[in-house]
Amino acid sequence: MAIWDYANPTRFLKLVQVVLPWLIGLCVITFAAGLYMSFFVAPEDYQQGDTVRIMYIHVPAAWLSMMCYSIMALSSLGTLVWKHPLADVSAKSAAPIGAAFTFMALVTGSLWGKPMWGTYWVWDARLTSVLVLFIMYLGLMTLWRTMEDPIKAGKAAAVLTLVGALNLPIIKFSVDWWNTLHQPASVIRMDGPTIHPDILWPLLVMALGFTLLFFVLHLMAMRNEILRRRVRALRLRAASAAQPGTAAATAQPAE
């Protein structure tokens, strides 16, 4: 079965029903292992002490904040180029989740920064560009709410999402392009990670847990959005049947 077969929302909902319990189970197990490793296996850092344990949630949240926006950008291409019926459902559903992960990255970074840097916040390039990402998420969520027609809203949001995607390389390379207080990349590097395996493994397991959590929430939110569009289409159909002569309800691709 090709990926395009899941363009059918009913078929997609059936797939979600099958996949979701397994994903939830895997997510819970991964988080249990990750948290155990973070608190009981990983040693203190020689400089940061126990404060390094904040990194086990800060770094995955920051990665997911960017991954979520990347998925929204890909979905936006799906909306504008291929007109995939589930593309704007995917983009719209991902935005609040991405905003939440970005919020977690900002707040945990701030809580790490106070004891380590001596301040909760500095206007350096990395922190500022991630704050811009958070504002982009909020802006997109607002745009979707302000437009009644989900198809028009999806197209407008897709254009804005793709424009906002320019911020992703800025976030990634800000620590290389500018002199920032934020440290440069220490895991995803051309010459390999610079973190000791005792600290790297808990970080990677927590990152996997966060990734699974994102997919669980994204699938659930997409399912809700499909149901919402069905409700809207049925209400429009009922309204046009009650008032013959008015414009017929337009069927939405992801009903």
Binding site: F39, E44, G49, D50, T51, R53, I54, I57, H58, A61, P96, I97, A100, F103, M104, V107, T108, L111, W112, K114, P115, L213, L217
Partner: peptide
């Protein structure tokens, strides 16, 4: 579990993440 002098920051970070995930 002794998390040192910055335990408050660590617990606040994990607690806030937990609340955010529960909210989602």
């Amino acid at each position: 579990m002794d998390l040192g002098p910055h335990a408050g920051f660590i617990w606040a970070s994990y607690g806030l993440c937990l609340l955010t995930v529960l909210g989602l």
